[in-house]
Design a binder for these strands. Structure first.
Length: 322
DNA sequence: TTGTGTTTTATTGCCTCC
DNA sequence: GGAGGCAATAAAACACAA
């Protein structure tokens, strides 16, 4: 057995100990039995003379091996209260664990509430009050601290779980809201596009050549052309995105490149691919009434960025983004 | 009554502090 | 190196359903 291997070898506070075993049993408690009718608070009064008769609660061993022989065992066992049967039981099974009485536990609980650490003086005092071994008091506090810690961990876990659930719910709400807004924006841009097309076909039909379907490849090439850089701040404009993106004529807004001689080719390119509306906006050339084509354009160039691309300011179709 | 799960009491070994 | 705390664990006591 280790240094602390004993069953209540006096108050060693965990360090003492030494020989133990039933041969060294010696009961030390000679205090009057604790009466459950006593107000518990009285036991907290300093210098209180009340005490528990704890000897019945636990087997006690003396450190020195005791010279007590035979009937010295459980000398103060409360025979009056427990009767001969229990006495015999103790005598025949002296190592049996005994639970503390409810009153004793209540007393210890109160003490624990005031301070969950146990100073040596307090331990002795409590032991006297309860008629238990100081070692028992120490063990009780130790186990009580462990239970308290477990409870606290459970509470902490619950709090964290609740917080997590709340955050998760908020996140899901935001996702839903985002999807809703996305579809709203899509609908509105479709409407705007149709509006502009109607204007364009009715007002310019007499003076302009028939609209040609926008070739996706052409458009993609054009829009990807580094020489025709799209202004990245177009998306930050407060005007409708489509309008911002394709402002007519004033290519200085849409494009960074100067209107130099070389840019004449680009102007031709623009003319081929876009139609200028009466309201001055440039729209991709689409055959009037050919809405499936429009859908194709929409799906090709009006796609929403997927997750993670939202912050990509350099994407080639940035001005199509919302 | 009995099997089983939970709680309580106690031990052991390791660690830190003084 | 001793005192005391803590985690892990054993084991008795207890609760309770079948």
């Amino acid at each position: 057995m280790a240094a602390r291997s004993f069953l209540y070898g006096g108050d060693s506070g965990g360090g003492g100990g030494g020989g133990s075993g039933f041969n060294s049993v010696l009961v030390t408690n000679k205090r009057p039995p604790f009466s459950s009718s006593m107000p518990l608070d009285s036991h907290f009064v300093s210098g209180s003379t009340h005490s528990f008769a704890g000897a019945r609660s636990m087997v006690s061993f003396d450190q020195d091996g005791g010279n007590g022989s035979g009937r010295n065992f459980f000398q103060t066992f409360d025979q009056e209260e427990n009767g001969d049967d229990e006495y015999d039981d103790y005598f025949q099974h002296p190592e049996k664990k005994r639970r503390l009485k409810a009153d004793q536990v209540q007393f210890l609980e109160k003490s624990f509430e005031t301070e969950n650490k146990l100073e040596p003086d307090r331990k002795i005092q409590l032991a006297k009050e309860l008629g238990l071994q100081p070692r028992q008091i120490a063990i009780w506090f130790q186990n009580r601290r462990a239970r308290w810690k477990t409870k606290r961990l459970e509470k902490d876990y619950d709090v964290l779980q609740e917080s997590y659930n709340e955050l998760k719910a908020n996140y899901e709400n935001l996702l839903q809201e985002k999807e809703k807004l996305k579809s709203e924006v899509h609908d509105l841009s479709d409407k705007l596009l149709l509006q502009e097309m109607e204007k364009g076909t009715s007002d310019s039909s007499s003076t302009k050549s028939p609209c040609e379907p926008l070739q996706q490849e052409q458009a993609a090439d054009f829009l990807n052309d580094e020489d025709v850089g799209v202004r990245s701040d177009a998306t930050e404009s407060s005007s409708p995105q489509y309008v911002d993106l394709i402002e007519r004529g004033d290519s200085s807004y849409l494009f960074e490149q100067d209107q130099s001689d070389e840019s004449l080719d680009e102007e031709d390119k623009l003319e081929k691919m876009f139609v200028t509306t009466v309201s001055g906006y440039m729209l991709p050339k689409i055959e009037s009434g050919d809405y499936p084509e429009l859908d194709a354009v929409n799906s090709s160039y009006l796609e929403f960025p997927s997750h993670g691309e939202d912050e990509d300011e350099d994407q080639p179709f940035g001005f199509w983004s919302y």
